[in-house]
Amino acid sequence: MNQETENRTCPECGRPIFGRIDKKFCSDACRNAANNKVNSDSTNYIRNVNNILRKNRRILLELNPTGKTKTQVDKLLKKGFDMEYYTNTYTTKAGQEYRYCYDQGYLLLDDGYVLLVQKIESLT
C-alpha cells in the first residue's frame, strides 16, 4: 500500500478508511450521516411542503365525498386548509381557475363558497 491510502480518514468520524481506493467514508452509517447533513435544509423544506399538500388533499377529500360539491371557504380554513399550496391549476375557456392538490380540486366562487371537484384522469 502507498502512503496516501494508509492515511485516509473518514470525514464524518475521523476513523481510518479501509477498502477501495475511492471509498470516502468508513461505513454506510457515516456516509448517510454526512449526506443527511448536506441535504437537511432542502429535505426539511420539501417535507414541510409535501405535508401541507397532503393535508390540503385530505381536507378536500373529506368535504367532497361525492366528487363534486359546494361548501363554504370558512369550512376549509377552519380545518386548516392552506390556500397558498396546490400542485397545479386548470384554467377554463371562460377564465375560471381551478386549483388542485393532486386529484382534488377547488374553484373559488364569488359568494364565499368554493366548488370542490375531483379530477378523473388516467396518467397513461
Score class of each variant (00 low, 15 high):
41 D>W: 10
51 N>D: 14
107 L>Y: 02
93 K>V: 10
114 V>G: 03
93 K>T: 07
48 N>Y: 14
25 F>R: 01
121 E>P: 00
12 E>L: 08
76 L>C: 04
124 T>G: 13
25 F>P: 00
110 D>E: 15
20 R>L: 05
7 N>Y: 07
16 P>H: 13
69 T>H: 06
111 D>F: 11
85 Y>H: 00
23 K>M: 08
108 L>Q: 01
98 Y>I: 07
87 T>I: 10
13 C>S: 00
8 R>N: 05
4 E>Y: 13
60 L>R: 03
84 E>W: 09
96 Q>C: 09
1 M>T: 10
103 D>W: 00
88 N>V: 08
79 K>H: 04
19 G>Q: 13
26 C>W: 00
45 Y>H: 13
88 N>H: 10
19 G>W: 06
25 F>K: 02
45 Y>P: 02
92 T>I: 13
37 K>Y: 12
4 E>S: 06
7 N>F: 06
69 T>E: 07
122 S>W: 14
24 K>S: 11
60 L>W: 06
102 Y>M: 10
85 Y>L: 04
49 V>A: 13
3 Q>W: 11
84 E>I: 03
124 T>S: 14
66 T>Q: 06
58 R>C: 13
102 Y>D: 12
62 E>C: 00
64 N>I: 03
109 L>P: 09
20 R>P: 05
7 N>W: 09
106 Y>Q: 02
13 C>T: 08
29 A>F: 15
80 G>I: 04
13 C>F: 06
97 E>Y: 12
72 Q>I: 06
37 K>M: 09
111 D>G: 15
39 N>D: 12
98 Y>D: 04
58 R>P: 01
65 P>C: 11
9 T>K: 10
70 K>P: 03
112 G>F: 13
29 A>I: 13
65 P>F: 02
62 E>Y: 11
89 T>L: 02
108 L>F: 09
44 N>D: 13
98 Y>M: 06
91 T>Y: 05
18 F>G: 08
14 G>D: 08
20 R>F: 01
107 L>K: 03
31 R>H: 10
54 R>D: 01
109 L>S: 13
74 D>N: 12
81 F>A: 04
57 R>C: 03
117 V>A: 04
78 K>A: 06
44 N>T: 12
93 K>D: 11
98 Y>A: 01
52 I>W: 06
86 Y>Q: 00
6 E>S: 12
32 N>R: 14
43 T>Q: 14
59 I>L: 03
123 L>P: 03
79 K>A: 05
92 T>N: 12
5 T>P: 03
109 L>C: 14
47 R>Y: 07
21 I>F: 14
74 D>W: 05
81 F>E: 07
55 K>R: 13
74 D>L: 11
59 I>P: 03
28 D>R: 12
30 C>R: 00
119 K>T: 11
75 K>Y: 00
14 G>I: 04
60 L>K: 01
103 D>F: 07
55 K>H: 04
75 K>Q: 07
124 T>I: 14
14 G>S: 05
45 Y>I: 15
118 Q>P: 04
48 N>Q: 14
